[in-house]
Design a protein around this nucleic acid. Sequence first.
DNA 1: AGTGCGATGTGTAACGCTACACAACTAGGA
DNA 2: TCCTAGTTGTGTAGCGTTACACATCGCACT
Lengths: 349, 349
Amino acid sequence: MPTDRRRVTLKDVAARAGVSPMTASYAFTRPARVAAATRERVHRAAGELGYRPDTVGRALKSGRTHQLGVVFSEHLAYAFDDPQAAQFLAGVAEVCVDEGRGLTLIPTRGDAADADRVLSAAVDGFVLWTTAQDDPVLTAVAGDPRPAVIQGGPARPGIACVTQDDYAAALAAASQGLRDGRTPGVISFPLDRDRAHMVTTGADLPPRAPFPVTDARLRGYRAAIEQAGLSWSSTPVAVVARNTQQDGAAAARELAHHLAPDALVIAMSDELALGAHRALRDSHPEAAYLGWDASPAGQRLGITSVTNPLRDQGRRCARLALDPARPDDREIPWTLTPGVAGTSADDDS
Amino acid sequence: MPTDRRRVTLKDVAARAGVSPMTASYAFTRPARVAAATRERVHRAAGELGYRPDTVGRALKSGRTHQLGVVFSEHLAYAFDDPQAAQFLAGVAEVCVDEGRGLTLIPTRGDAADADRVLSAAVDGFVLWTTAQDDPVLTAVAGDPRPAVIQGGPARPGIACVTQDDYAAALAAASQGLRDGRTPGVISFPLDRDRAHMVTTGADLPPRAPFPVTDARLRGYRAAIEQAGLSWSSTPVAVVARNTQQDGAAAARELAHHLAPDALVIAMSDELALGAHRALRDSHPEAAYLGWDASPAGQRLGITSVTNPLRDQGRRCARLALDPARPDDREIPWTLTPGVAGTSADDDS
DNA sequence: AGTGCGATGTGTAACGCTACACAACTAGGA
DNA sequence: TCCTAGTTGTGTAGCGTTACACATCGCACT
């Protein structure tokens, strides 16, 4: 019980245990390096003094902070509006807890200074939430020697990628949905980093979307629609600003007069599909819905969904970022989960 | 463009700018301390070399990390299953971004070592998510000189508290719900740190719950029930393990045979109420529901709810933790938000 | 007795930064 | 002219820790 305010340092412990600071240090960091009796003495002294190794001093000397940084490259606070981002983060957190690493959320605000903020974070590695091809944060991180893993892409020489075959999944889901002759309408994630929301048709979409996930899914939908003998050019497409039920509902309302009563609403997430379902329930009671993520709520409403295990992807990203040599699978398999329409009773959520 | 791998240090910048390291340091940290021309020269040199101040070196010397630590004192990964915790975190994140602080999620696993993990985190202050009276993390943090703020309590000498009058709100909400002669059933948050789920009655509840929020709400419910001339002892109470719709549904199923067809289901959150609604929809179509947090989904189902602006509470907690002298309101006002039953159309979510 | 090796302890020298004290110089006032 | 005060630059000395090299000892083996 040191009476003065100064923090207890390794030197104090060493003095009390009657050894040199180095020995005390080894007693903690490489116990085998020290004779059992000495080690015991050091630990007891530490306990008596209430010593706690200083993370910062350690980090300065060793060059490792034992912190994993997570980057959501728009305003950090928005990340929590997207339940999928939260699930992803839960997966990352799981691994950090297991591995005894800290988890730093890097405070981005979606502006030009983000790249700097990211690089100056005191972390050993980065996990990035999917972003656009031209995001400057990407090039910044790619040039940094610390390991980095991105969920959903885009990949870069310095950035590993954990993803799934969005094109194939989108193609399969849409193909199946179109089998019974419905005409489609699409609700898409944002097409540019401004996240401008809009309503258009396949004909007027830009040829490529900068977000690789969005791009792959759009191409998959298009392929399915064309394989079904329908016209992509005249397929109505609504683009939302954010992955929320609100935006899904708003998009669906704007799409409504372009949709047949039994339309197939192809949404890029269950969140969007749920919003659309809510908006169209009365006007289009015969509509069918396609989503992504197999959320329990979507399941109950009969939304057919691609399973997109974001929690698992979070785990994998974190593991790779903590140990880049690790032979973890970087392409996650997907499956199609039909919604159990009508079974509205209960079970999970 | 330094050709070797070594990181660019302040000394390099100083050398290139032809000044001493101290001057270079001042050029960044106290620009006014340095002549404009010199400052300019230093900044240019820094730009050319791609210098970025080292957070760790800075932290070691200055004793401040510019990081705010958030503690969810059970397993960190579980925090993201609770949408309210996520909302709270969003509020904290907002402030961190605005103030240019980093946000560290402290990796707790809900075991005895958590207190140590918390104290060794390299952060300047703590924000804690509500926890039990006897949580050892509390005493640990209270004894630490760094500022700490807890949402929902319990408060401690060293820990500020941001909360609302849960007792009054619970009393008011339940009183109003009981006005039309319904008989109540309660779905409560956990009563102990083991989070054991159970079904019981008011008579068999322990006199006090260790979680202050839970305790206050239970007392409020009890007061309302007794003021309505009903028996608390015979009121059925289900206690869940976690604040999820699943647990709410499960609790409601266990409660079902104790409930009148037109029962008032008093739940401690909209999440729980939503789950209960789902479970009882068919068996108890006349039931009414009370929740907490005024979620849009709850609103649509006609759940009357206490507004519990967790995002705002997150903001306040973060501000207080970053600047303990700040005169922020620590008791948040609440209001009762009636659900708009039947208006199932759409709007937000 | 001499050699070699593993086990164990210690000094030294940073890691990158900044608090602090001080030096040098300029300007202004009496 | 001298003194004071402000402005601007610099050295020194660590913050708490650990990498590294080195010293010492005992012991087995030849």
